[in-house]
Design a protein around this nucleic acid. Structure first.
Lengths: 206, 206
DNA sequence: GGATGTGAATGTCTTCACAGCT
DNA sequence: AGCTGTGAAGACATTCACATCC
């Protein structure tokens, strides 16, 4: 098991998206140059990325769209459905819950939890918001594989500890804190304020 | 104007957050080691990052919390308020609108636009959602400096073209597309599905 | 003594350039 | 002829290690 950089994985996910578009447009083959252009990278980068996993192209021709799409989906593990739970049914949480793309791409949010009694029991598109206390048990019982954390910063670490303890090994965190997870648990952060601060820096220019 | 890497900027924004916490906790000085520990990096990295902008520490002592905080806020350009507009008042858009941290960190969303007549005219915490057609003029008139794009993927590029044309030079994009912007315009993408796909890859392990 | 600031060393990622297939 | 696959080169980022200063 080679070590694949985070940026390579991101690009693969992008290629997948472009390949899907190309497939929808009825294209049969696509070259590394085509993929590169759409992804804002170079053809060499595309070929290097793909070569990490095998040789999928035909020299002189390019890549067969359907075949490469299938390969990349398998590599990314998105050739199946993932069971996802949402912790925190506030504004961001509910927005994520009804985010169409998740469903479309095979990420099924089949459980939701909140510590606010006012929210517990409410229905979110077929899924009932459950009490915080039920979380640990239900995560296991329902075989949840990924958790989206959308709770206040102060609560996030405690939630994550419990989630990890319940056997979940992938976490997408929206709370603006640096979380600690054991080795072997995948963690991605979406830090909205950080992004705006990055823009601020770019405008301030230094 | 040196070239500063994206990751360095991200880390600076993190240090800023930790410094704020340290300040709130009443600490006077902090060492690169302390900052590193909280930020999941190394003390050498912290010092390198800071050294890109100057020498803020005292040997043998560390950094004076208040002073370093002030410096970093100035470097990032967050020692002021930014005028932000939101385009797309759907689920994600409205969630972002009421995201407390933006306000708290000096990002004031003072305008919102949507193309859906049903949403136009509605009030979002003191800001009235305006029609899409009014966007270009209002962006200029209100001196908007950053725009958050939360529209469907198909609409995003057109929105961005107009926004750039209206003089905005910083864009935070939530639509799952690769946008084209002219040089000189800062663009950050928050691609939620991409993040989940990254987790999927991590779990699938290859 | 203790922590910074920084050149040098190392490691990682990207780009180049071309041999090798189709 | 065209485009892939890939070593080698180059660029970039991180880590080391130590002289420097408080």
């Amino acid at each position: 098991m080679k070590k694949i950089s985070d940026s390579a994985v991101r690009r693969l996910a992008l290629y997948q998206r472009f390949l899907q578009e190309a497939a929808d447009a009825g294209l049969d083959t696509i070259s590394s140059g085509d993929l590169a252009e759409r992804g804002g990278t170079t053809s060499a980068q595309v070929r290097k990325d793909l070569s990490l996993f095998g040789s999928f192209g035909k020299r002189g021709l390019g890549y067969e769209v359907q075949e490469l799409l299938r390969e990349i989906r398998e590599i990314l593990g998105v050739d199946r459905t993932w069971k996802v739970a949402l912790v925190g049914a506030g504004k961001i949480g509910s927005a994520l819950f009804s985010y169409r793309d998740f469903q479309k791409r095979g990420f099924r949010i089949s459980a939701a939890f909140d510590s606010d009694p006012a929210k517990v029991g409410s229905d979110m598109g077929g899924v009932t918001v459950r009490a915080d206390e039920e979380m640990d048990r239900r995560l296991r019982d329902e075989g949840i594989e990924m958790v989206i954390v959308a709770v206040p910063a102060e609560a996030a670490q405690a939630v994550v500890d419990r989630v990890v303890n319940a056997g979940v090994r992938a976490i997408l965190n929206f709370a603006p804190v640096r979380l600690r997870v054991p080795r072997g648990v995948a963690l991605r952060n979406v830090d909205l304020t950080l992004e705006l601060e990055g823009l601020s820096f770019a405008l301030t220019g230094r």
